[in-house]
């Protein structure tokens, strides 16, 4: 998967889970600026990302993934 494909997939998943259009998603998208992204939604988002990328995150990952940028970082660290 190219970095572009990876980013597209992240954006697509965030958009589906948070109920936003893909063009509303950017690196800074985070619980600070999306009301729907609360602690419960965060867990459901993490599970959706795991399924989409065939990944299994650690508790540390899950706590870190608190913005679109951080999600990208965690996935790229794992070469996904």
């Amino acid at each position: 998967m190219t970095p572009e494909q990876r980013d597209e997939k992240i954006h697509h998943t965030l958009s589906a889970v948070l109920g936003l259009s893909v063009d509303q998603i950017n690196d800074d998208t985070s619980p600070d600026n999306v009301t729907a992204w609360d602690s419960v939604m965060h867990l459901n988002l993490v599970l959706a990302l795991e399924e989409a990328f065939g990944a299994l995150f650690t508790p540390e990952d899950i706590l870190l993934m608190n913005s679109c940028r951080a999600i990208r970082q965690v996935l790229s660290d794992r070469a996904l």
């Binding site: 697509h12 998943t13 589906a16 889970v17 109920g19 729907a36 459901n44 988002l45 599970l47 959706a48 399924e51 989409a52």
Partner: peptide, 15 residues
């Protein structure tokens, strides 16, 4: 359904 599908659909059903 993927989990992302479920979340999307649930959001739409709520609205």
């Amino acid at each position: 359904l993927t989990r992302a599908d479920v979340m999307k659909l649930a959001g739409a059903l709520e609205v």
